[in-house]
Each structure stands twice: as C-alpha cells, then as structure tokens.
Amino acid sequence: MTNLTAVLGDITSQDVDAIVNAANNAMRGGGGVDGALHRAGGPAILADCIARFPHGLATGDAGWTTAGNLPARWVIHTVGPNHAAGERDRALLLSCYRRALDVADELGARSLAFPLISAGVYGWPLADAIDAAVSVLAQTGRAADEIRIVARDEDIHRQLRARLARSTPA
C-alpha cells in the first residue's frame, strides 16, 4: 500500500527516486517549480529535456529526464493546464497525475515527490488543485511505496493535510 503524505518544504531537496516537475509545454525551464528544479538540478536537466522532448510535451502528458544535481534519480515532467490562460479542463489536470504515475511505474520509481500541479502561476484554484492531487494519488494502486505532496507554505500544507485526512478510510 502506498504511503501518501503532505510535506512542508522545498521540492528540490526531496530525497526520493523521482521528483515530479510542473513543467511548461516547451520543456526548456521556466518559473515556479520548473525553474527551481532546473536551477537546483543544473544544466543536465535542460540538456536532457532538449534531447528527449525536441518539440515539447502536450498538456496532460508526462515524460522523464535525469535529475542532474538533485537528490533524486529522475525528474518526471508533466504539463498542467494553464487555468489563467483559459485551459480549464479538469481532466487534463487529473491526467498529469496519472501520466506521472505511469512514467514512475515504467522507471521503477518507488518514492515520488509531487508539487501541486497548475496551482502556482497557472492559477488553478487551490482547493480544486489539492482535491485533484489527493483524489488521484490516494487511489494509485501503483508500485510506489511512498508519495509525497510537497507544499511550499504552511497554509497550503495545512489544507493538504486536512484533505488527506478526509481521504483516509476510518
């Protein structure tokens, strides 16, 4: 059974098999989680993105690269819908989590760290972003032993913990 937890901290410092990146379609680095992972992981991540994804990735899809200097072995990149730009199909957000889990299974990753995909600059409403993450990750049925949802601040961490408590069978 997968252990799903909310962690308060920096996603770039998570010692897991794979860190999930909330990437953009171009796969060339960016802001938020994407920029932080590229800065901490170094140029190897960008070089691998260019080699593996010369035409980028579609919204809702996922793929992997090296983790460079990060404590993880891989980065699983997934492109969330940009709510602020009018991409509001929740199925695409759910697909990000499912596809990232598919890639993790293909890699044999047993421990994963996820951000809240699309909840930053892409403007997905926080409560729904949390619900989407927990609803998919709590029902994984996958090979991963440990899945962390990493929150960047206390308020988001508190909301994640509350939502996880509601998803745990009594």
Results as ranks from 00 to 15, higher is better:
121 V>D: 00
31 G>H: 02
76 I>G: 01
111 S>H: 06
43 P>N: 14
22 A>F: 08
113 A>G: 07
66 T>R: 09
79 V>K: 04
70 L>G: 01
114 F>I: 00
30 G>S: 10
18 A>V: 12
20 V>N: 00
50 I>C: 12
76 I>N: 01
118 S>H: 04
111 S>R: 09
101 L>K: 09
124 W>N: 00
117 I>S: 01
54 P>D: 10
58 A>I: 12
80 G>I: 04
65 T>S: 14
118 S>N: 07
10 D>M: 10
15 D>T: 08
62 A>S: 13
106 E>Y: 14
96 C>D: 04
81 P>H: 11
12 T>F: 09
123 G>Y: 03
73 R>F: 06
57 L>T: 06
26 A>I: 10
58 A>F: 13
47 A>M: 10
83 H>M: 12
104 A>L: 08
102 D>Y: 09
120 G>R: 09
108 G>P: 10
90 R>G: 14
126 L>Y: 06
68 G>L: 04
50 I>R: 12
91 A>S: 15
115 P>Y: 06
94 L>A: 10
56 G>D: 03
113 A>K: 04
37 L>A: 06
116 L>Y: 05
120 G>I: 05
100 A>P: 07
104 A>H: 03
97 Y>S: 03
37 L>I: 10
100 A>T: 01
72 A>L: 05
72 A>D: 00
61 D>H: 14
64 W>C: 14
21 N>A: 02
123 G>T: 00
87 E>T: 11
41 G>L: 03
88 R>V: 11
53 F>V: 07
118 S>I: 01
73 R>I: 04
118 S>P: 08
32 G>P: 05
121 V>A: 10
79 V>F: 13
8 L>Q: 11
16 V>Q: 05
22 A>L: 03
38 H>K: 12
74 W>V: 05
50 I>K: 13
50 I>M: 11
72 A>N: 08
79 V>L: 12
116 L>P: 07
16 V>E: 01
10 D>S: 05
82 N>E: 09
49 C>E: 07
86 G>E: 03
25 N>G: 15
93 L>N: 00
28 R>M: 13
81 P>N: 11
113 A>C: 12
19 I>R: 01
31 G>P: 08
21 N>R: 00
36 A>L: 12
98 R>D: 09
109 A>N: 07
43 P>K: 15
65 T>M: 08
120 G>P: 05
19 I>C: 04
27 M>T: 03
64 W>I: 09
94 L>D: 13
96 C>P: 00
67 A>I: 04
53 F>P: 02
63 G>W: 06
41 G>F: 02
60 G>N: 02
23 A>Q: 04
122 Y>I: 06
20 V>F: 01
52 R>E: 12
